[in-house]
Design a protein around this nucleic acid. Structure first.
Length: 479
RNA sequence: GUCCCCUUCGUCUAGCCUGGCCCAGGACACCGCCCUUUCACGGCGGCGACACCGGUUCAAAUCCGGUAGGGGACGCCA
């Protein structure tokens, strides 16, 4: 029975297992988000399992705030994980066990060199132009009497090469002389990163390690550890870095890098995801991908080998695209926080969904949309003087009077109907649309950048429209 | 310094594995025109790249070698 079940299971689910393993020492940044996305996509595409693991072995720098920020970012982007989050700090005894195993097998040894001494040697080596690797002082020294602090080092092979086939970069080979005996356990008994990843990836049965480019140099050491421990070596896929405009590694000084910051700036998660997936990965000339299309078309082999520059302009374009084509109801809900941060309340004002509809083609971000929506809820307290100055006083007053009269006498309930009324006003008085539309627009919104007249009037309502025109009328005649 | 990786329009990229269809295609941005009551949307067009040098070949963005440039790593950080 059990056998049958597992067979059934392996038919629907592949054995493929991937993980995203951030360390909780900061927020989720766009680079990490893209790595997570590629992992997620790979798992979804192949019917595998996506695991979230928190690498918090650095007790000093790991914080709860960072952890929450990462989780929040993942959820906002919709990168749901199948297992975890697992915490490395929960597995300290396990790591210890494996360290002991290596020690017993003579594949690791205790090193009594002090951090200060090592630092000095490292600096000296760098200065002399040598590779700053461990000189192996304790490699053959044997165990010293109790009480002296020590770290545990992995006894790495000194000859030959270590290589692996990277799914993105191809075969990568390192001469073993380049690799030194890395520390796997600190003086305080805690395990180090390179050791933990190997144990975790092995015990979690990770089949494919997809991670940032900056880890390629760690990979040969990890491969050696897998081999020393007798674990199968997983496949590796190293995705290139994301750079700033100056081609240097993306960092805070290039502007926002936090996923949550993009949310707060009014970006839609589907826009960021779409942008990120195209950074490094492509499917022919396609630019717009829904989640399902992404999953369907994703192939790790189509990830490029070179680093890419983060370009906000294109992100903006994608965001505008998704706003334009988005569901107004949803957008309205997402817009609310951007409105309240401007102290705008929609209470008693026009229907927000209707407002959103008039703004969808006019905003690149929700922030921008909120800015453009303000006039609907706050009657203009001043008018664009330069725009108003293009018309003389008499003309303005005549237009305002004619429009108010028309609006009050003839009912119209959609934008097209309202526009028709304005055309009537024009033809009845021999005016051009520009002479009528613009003054009214200014009266209603305070400025010239606004949706179509018909759209504004309909969403504002005729009553409020007339009220605003009369207010403008008073303003103009008082001049 | 040493090792590893990378190099097509300003940017993201297609093409490269399986040379000729590529005097290199798409997208963002930019410029111009059209549409238009403003702002936008949209449509059309333009600008613009195979890092460099050699080699192989009838033929190279595509294969080989070198050079230059960029990035990454070299922690008792991850």
């Amino acid at each position: 029975m059990i056998v049958e079940n597992s067979l059934l299971r392996s038919n629907s689910m592949s054995e493929l297992r991937v993980r995203f393993a951030p360390s909780p020492t900061g927020y989720l940044h766009v680079g990490g988000a893209r790595t997570a996305l590629f992992n997620w996509l790979f798992a979804r595409k192949e019917g595998g399992t996506f695991i979230l693991r928190i690498e918090d072995t650095d007790v000093e720098r790991s914080t709860k705030e960072s952890l929450d920020a990462i989780l929040e970012g993942m959820k906002w982007l919709g990168l749901e994980w199948d297992e975890g989050p697992f915490y490395q700090s929960d597995s300290f005894p396990l790591y210890k066990e494996y360290v002991q195993k290596l020690l017993d097998a003579g594949k690791a040894y205790k090193c009594y060199c002090t951090a200060e001494k090592l630092d000095a040697k490292r600096t000296l080596a760098m200065q002399e132009g040598r590779k700053p690797k461990y000189d192996g002082t304790c490699r053959e020294r044997g165990v010293l009497p109790d009480g002296r602090p020590y770290v545990v080092r992995f006894r790495a092979p000194q000859n030959g090469v270590t290589s692996f086939d990277d799914l993105i970069k191809g075969t990568i080979t390192f001469p073993n002389e380049e690799l030194d005996d890395l520390i796997i356990q600190r003086t305080d008994g805690t395990p180090t990163y390179n050791f933990c990843v190997v144990i975790d990836d092995a015990t979690m049965r990770i089949t494919t390690v997809i991670r940032g480019d900056d880890h390629v140099n760690n990979t040969p050491r990890q491969v050696q550890l897998y081999e020393a421990l007798g674990f199968p070596v997983p496949q590796f896929a190293h995705v290139p870095m994301i750079l700033g405009t100056d081609k240097a590694r993306l960092s805070k000084r290039h502007g926002a890098t936090s996923v949550i910051a993009y949310r707060d700036m009014g970006f839609l998660p589907e826009a960021l995801i779409n942008y990120l997936v195209r950074l490094g990965w492509s499917h022919g000339d396609d630019e717009i991908f829904s989640r399902d299309e992404m999953i369907q078309k994703f192939d790790i082999h189509n990830v490029g080998r070179s680093a890419s520059v983060f370009n906000t302009e294109k992100l903006l374009w994608l965001n505008a695209h998704y706003i334009k084509n988005g569901d107004p109801e949803r957008l309205a809900a997402l817009l609310l926080p951007h409105l309240s941060s401007r102290e705008v309340t929609t209470l008693g004002g026009p229907n927000l969904v209707a407002v959103v509809k008039t703004l969808q083609e006019r905003a690149q971000t929700l922030e921008e949309m909120a800015g453009r929506a303000v006039f609907y809820y706050n009657t203009p307290v001043s008018y664009d003087d330069a725009a108003l100055a293009k018309f003389d006083k008499e003309q303005l007053l005549a237009v305002f009077a004619a429009v108010t009269a028309k609006l009050s006498s003839v009912p119209a309930n959609d934008a097209a109907g309202i526009d028709a009324l304005f055309k009537e006003v024009c033809s009845e008085n021999g005016w051009k649309m520009g002479q009528v539309g613009q003054p009214v627009r200014i009266a209603l919104s305070g400025g010239t950048q606004a949706p179509g007249i018909g759209e504004i009037v309909v969403t504002l309502g005729v009553e409020e429209t007339v009220r605003r025109i009369q207010k403008a009328q008073e303003f103009v005649s008082a001049k």
